[in-house]
């Protein structure tokens, strides 16, 4: 995974965005990644897939990805082009799926940082330095460092490529 990521923000400023709105239940039978991407965030913004460009970021309120264990959720988001989700907290299975599948980065930021970032801002995220630069606003924000094992799995590009010591 490239350590410096650059992209535009898509901000949905609400807490508890659940997996049923990220990828609604009827699509669980679908396992084609590109087809899933067409329905990403359908329960919150049906136009979402058209708005996203490769490398963009999602910024949301806390407890992102709560609900089901469906790996369809990070798959659908990553297939639209989303490279990282920035939120004060994540539901645990969404977090694991995002990291272990190597789909996207779940980045924990302070609630105050969420407030400072606006929709369509251009960000640069440097995970080697745990630093987020808001290019549009010329601001810098901290991010919570990844725990050691998580950082290694991210570095490896997913759990399958990681070799436990």
């Amino acid at each position: 995974m490239n350590k410096a990521l650059k992209g535009m923000v898509h901000k949905y400023d609400r807490d508890n965005i659940d997996t049923d709105v990220i990828i609604p239940g009827p699509y669980l039978k679908i396992h084609d990644h590109k087809e899933l991407a067409m329905h990403a965030m359908e329960g919150i913004d049906p136009k979402f897939p058209e708005k996203v460009s490769q490398g963009d970021f999602l910024v949301t309120g806390k407890n992102f990805g709560c609900g089901s264990s469906r790996e369809h959720a990070p798959i659908a988001l990553s297939q639209t082009g989303i490279k990282a989700v920035l939120s004060p907290s994540f539901a645990r299975i969404f977090y694991r799926n995002a990291v272990d599948g190597g789909y996207l980065l779940p980045i924990e930021i302070d609630e105050s940082t969420v407030k400072k970032i606006s929709d369509k801002d251009e960000l640069e995220i440097n995970i080697a330095q745990d630093r987020i630069t808001n290019i549009t606003k010329n601001e810098q924000y901290p991010m919570k460092p990844f725990p050691e094992l998580i950082a290694k799995i991210i570095e490896a590009g997913g759990l399958i490529n990681y070799k436990p010591a």
């Binding site: 264990s69 790996e71 299975i93 694991r96 799926n97 272990d100 599948g101 997913g158 759990l159 399958i160």
Partner: peptide
Amino acid sequence: GLGHTDVAYVLMNGQIWFR
């Protein structure tokens, strides 16, 4: 509960990471 990648990993290795 786990996602697909983690279950696939368990099917291969019989173990998985937990915090």
